[in-house]
Design a binder for these strands. Structure first.
Length: 180
DNA sequence: AACCCGGAAGTCCG
DNA sequence: CCGGACTTCCGGGT
């Protein structure tokens, strides 16, 4: 069955012709002979290597997801109930401020607002932001580890409650509507 | 491995 | 100088 197939294909490849376009829209004539591998790039005088060096990487991808939000320190002040003076937030106050700030909806969200339950969506960004906002300045950079340890301190002083859930914390109800 | 937990000691700042 | 609020380090648990 395959006997005459070979002969047929041979004749098919004879003198096959094609017209190609270069990137400059120049026309090139190409002729295939019997030999399938006869096509020669040297016939295309205008052939060039594709340019690859210039536009390798022009913009740096943010390795961490999400774009940066510009810091506005006026958003991070609270009026001390005791002294009436302005000051930087404590860590639990920072969380409340963060939750109520519509610019940071990608950072944190309520799980159950009535319970004070919230979940941090971008732990590293939140920690870094705390590092900039906090009153007490230190040398090291604020990591989520350190940030979370600070939050745990609030369990013992009673301003927050444990959750055991990943990136999830519970704020004590703010002193709003407790009257009846 | 990435979290969570809390003890212990150190630091900043009002 | 004191003390509150973390910060830093860490060993242990899930």
């Amino acid at each position: 069955m395959d006997d005459n197939y070979e002969d047929e294909s041979l004749t098919d490849y004879e003198e096959f012709q094609a017209t190609l376009k270069t990137p400059e829209n120049q026309l090139i004539d190409i002729t295939f002979s019997n030999n399938k591998n006869d096509f020669d790039l040297n016939d295309c005088t205008d052939y060039r290597e594709p340019l690859s060096n210039t536009t390798a990487d022009d913009h740096v991808q943010p390795s961490d997801d999400s774009e940066e939000i510009e810091l506005d320190l006026t958003e991070w002040q609270i009026i001390d109930p005791r002294s009436g003076k302005n000051r930087r937030p404590r860590q639990n106050e920072f969380l409340e401020l963060l939750l109520s700030n519509t610019r940071y909806t990608s950072y944190i969200c309520w799980v159950d607002k009535d319970q004070g339950l919230c979940r941090i969506l971008l732990p590293n960004q939140v920690a870094a932001l705390w590092g900039k906002v906090k009153r007490r300045q230190t040398n090291g950079k604020m990591t989520y580890q350190t940030f979370a340890r600070g939050l745990r301190y609030h369990y013992t002083i009673g301003s927050m409650m444990k959750t055991k859930k990943k990136h999830t914390f519970c704020l004590k109800k703010s002193p709003k509507n407790g009257s009846s």
